[in-house]
Each structure stands twice: as C-alpha cells, then as structure tokens.
Design a protein around this nucleic acid. Structure first.
Lengths: 246, 246
DNA sequence: GATAAACGTACATATATGTGAATTTATCTG
DNA sequence: CAGATAAATTCACATATATGTACGTTTATC
C-alpha cells in the first residue's frame, strides 16, 4: 500500500526542485489538482516542521535550507569515492550516452549516480530511478555478485512480467542470461525492460558494497557497438580505480 | 491540522540524518513506536519513489542520494551570498554564542543559517527552527522591515501567549518594543519567548529579502553585554557586506 | 473608492487509510 | 538439520483523516 500523504510530501519538494521559485497555496493545489484545504494542511505541516517558509509576505512558500542540511548529513556517510563520479562522467562524455552507478534495492536496482547523455534522443534517468533487477543490464551486473542462495531469495519475490519482447520471464531464463554474461564478459540488455532501450554493464564492487556501472541509450546507437562500449567501461574502471583498493 | 504521514516522512529522514547508518524495518518501527505494518507501508512508499534503498540485502534501508540531489536543486536558487555564513561563523566565534540568519514565515521566524555556540550551556537551534516573530529579538528585527499595514496584517494572525514574564501580550506592547528598538539601535529579548534565553538582533535586508542576524545565548552571559554584542554584530556586518550592494 | 474575484482558513462528515492480528518467510540455536 | 524465534508481509475492519462547503480576508478591476 502506498502512503499518499508521504508521497505528496516528496512531490511537493520535487515540484520546488523543478520550478525553483516560491509558490502560493493556490498554485500548488492547482498544479497537483489537490483540494485547497488538503494542500493547506500539508503546507502547514511542512512549515511547522521547519521545511517551508514564506520568503516574503504573500509571495508564497519555499523550502528552507533545512532539507539540504539534512540531506548532507545523510550523504556524508559512506559516500561513493570521488573516482566513481569521474567514471560515469568520462563514460558519458566518451560514449555520448547516459552512464550510471547502480545499487540493489530488493527486486529493484536504484540509480545512485547518473550523468546524462547530451543527445536529443537519450536515456532519461535520474538519481533514485528504479528498474527491475533481473530485466536490466545494470541489475544483472548486481545479481552476478550475489551467492546462489541470495539470488534464489530475490527470485522468489520477483513478479515476472513481460516488459518487452526479450524480457526473461522465468528464473531459468534469468540464470541462463547470467551465465551468458559471464562468458561474454559483461551484461547487456536489448529492450528487456524498456522498449528500444539497450545497455551494457559490469559489476563494480566497492568496499563490500555491490554496485554496477552501466552505459545505456537507444538500441540503434548502442546495438552496433555494445562490445566496444563494454570494453570501454572495463578499461575506464581499470584506469580510475585505485590499485590498492578491492 | 497536522498531516501525520507527512510529518513521519520527515522524521524518518531526520532519523537517518542522526544515526547515519542503514536501519531495518523493525529498528525504525521500534524507534518511533510505530506498528510494523504502518512502517512497512511508509518504507515501501519511500522506496518506490526512489528515496530509500537497501545497500546490502537484509541489512536494512538507507536514503539514496536522491534527496540530496533534490535539496541541491532547491537551494541553488537565490542562495544566501557566502559572506552571510562568514558573518554568523565570525559572530559565533567572537561571542562564543549561537549566531543565526533568520527569515519570516507568517507569524513565525525561521532560522535559515545557524552556527552553534561551543559552550556547554548554549542556545540550541538548528536550521529550520521556528520562533514567534513578535516575541523574539530576531523576529522583531524582521518586523522593523515591514510597513505598518503589513505588520497589522501579521498582528491579526498572532495568538498572543504569555511565553515568559516579559512576553509582549498585545499589539501595543509589540509596537512599543519596536519603537524602543529603533531608539536603542538594535532589537533585544530577555526571556520574551524562552526562559533564560536572551538575544540581540539587527535587520539584514539582502537583495529585496527581509532577513535578520541574531546572537543568542543564556541570559546570564548575554545580559551584561547586550550593547557590546549588538555593536559587534553591526560592525561585523559593515565589515563583511559588499559595499556596492544594498 | 467600491465591487468582484481570488485566496487562505475552519470545521463537520463520509470515507480512504492505518493498524492489530494472522500468515508467511527468514534466521538463529542446540 | 529440526524446532524455535524473529522479521517481513498480507488483509479486513474500525477509526483517524482528507475534503466539501462555507466564511473572512486580501488583491485586482473598474
């Protein structure tokens, strides 16, 4: 069950992140199609907790720096080493596609760092974006780092759906694809999850954390050069990863 | 009316900001005294929206960098000029007390930047902290920047409560104190809002925004040297504020 | 300066939602 | 490797909660 008002809080904050200017109660209510009274209660709650204020009288609400302060606290622990951001930045620059660092989240994989392609047609993803772990290159690069038991445990919770023509719709299909990936030397996906979307990924274990790097983009651009892209990922990781660390 | 699940989202995030490590459903539920099932729904919602993930299987949840990305977006607009942080940092260092930048939020004043005192006994405040605008030095330094009509509009919404022995409990009392402040050259408060708490503040208009700076601490330390502290604030602002700007 | 429109706020009520208990799944222990 | 213990899910129901409606206030229009 989704907790509506919890989601609404996030949506309001995302709204401010997009518009980047103060908004009145009425504007917010209209934007989301929420009743004024409900919007009023929400804004009052956020204000009371110190996350919203009124920069100038009658000009509407805007978030206080409190959210930033909190987010910085949270992110200071176990931050990704700086070279991982260089990694995705370099990969995106060299391939012209979207590059990301991905982490596991149950049956899903979450993007925890993203550098987007500059191309007009591109894979649009943001930090926090989630995709099924078994039906994506990046996700399978995570699964490769699991033990058989851990994978089985994940499989039990997966609801196998036919996202696209090539989606693996059984445990066996996923396991087979994982074996292929090992032989091939990297993980790939051609429209397994999202139509026309292709990607190449490899595992990226960092200090006990199971992560992966992926380069993804439209099938017509990635397809002809998956090998090449995968090799580039591997080389770039080799170049940037400190030699001492695991 | 306070929206409970909205507040809960913020509390969960604050919890992570404090503990700075992954927490399981059970730990979170126990910490807040929430039922497991409700906690489950909340965590599921936050995960689904991409704000929480499971760094390693069965080791609990932790926020993704998405919150940080969002907060940075929000804060990039109209950021406070860097010298304002230097201002509160210097003031806190020189006085040994807590120094803050404060902004209006209806009948309240919000702390939007804070450098805390290092003293054992100190004024504890964080970014986002809110105090009544009429019953604090920092708040009155904001009111001084309002027109009479704007002030009247605020007064109508204030619920005058006797927070402490010297709280102004009427419009006249507030207006009188504002006149005193003008004559005195700065705003002050001795336990008006919080017992044993004293502070000195001056208006700090920046680029059309109505802000104030305040130095606050225990009455026994601030009391004997309000004048001195207020003068220091004024001098420090003069020193740091760029000459060209308003 | 008067009138109209928009906006923000309060409250009672029907209903969407949170929750206690039951079920399933995972982990620990001898 | 069982059996026990703890954690994670599910579900039906009662109740806490979102909202329709109404009112006062502020801003825009003429």
């Amino acid at each position: 069950m989704i907790v509506r008002q919890a989601a609404n809080v996030l949506e309001i904050m995302e709204f401010f992140a997009q518009t980047r200017k103060p908004a009145t109660l009425a504007e917010i209510a209209d934007h989301f199609g929420w009743p004024r009274s409900s919007t009023f209660n929400l804004l009052a709650t956020l204000s009371e907790k110190g996350y919203l204020y009124e920069p100038r009288p009658r000009a509407g609400f805007y978030p206080t720096p409190r959210l930033l302060a909190m987010a910085q606290m949270i992110s200071e622990v176990e931050p990704l080493p700086p070279w991982t951001h260089t990694l995705v930045a370099d990969l995106s620059a060299e391939t012209g596609e979207t590059a990301s660092i991905v982490a596991p989240a149950g049956v899903m994989a979450v993007f925890i760092d993203v550098v987007e392609s500059q191309a007009a047609i591109r894979y649009f993803a943001t930090i926090g974006h989630r995709v099924p772990i078994h039906a994506t290159a990046s996700g399978r690069a995570l699964l490769l780092q699991y033990s058989q038991e851990e994978r089985d445990s994940v499989y039990r919770k997966i609801e196998f759906k036919q996202y696209g023509p090539s989606t693996p719709i059984s445990i066996d299909a996923v396991e087979a694809e994982l074996r292929n990936s090992i032989d091939r030397g990297f993980c790939q996906s051609f429209g397994d999850y999202s139509r026309d979307l292709a990607g190449a990924a490899i595992p990226l274990p960092i200090g006990g954390r199971r992560l992966s790097v992926v380069v993804a983009g439209p099938e017509f651009r990635i397809g002809p050069r998956v090998q090449e892209v995968a090799a580039l990922i591997a080389r770039t990781v080799d170049r940037l990863r400190p030699k001492a660390a695991a």
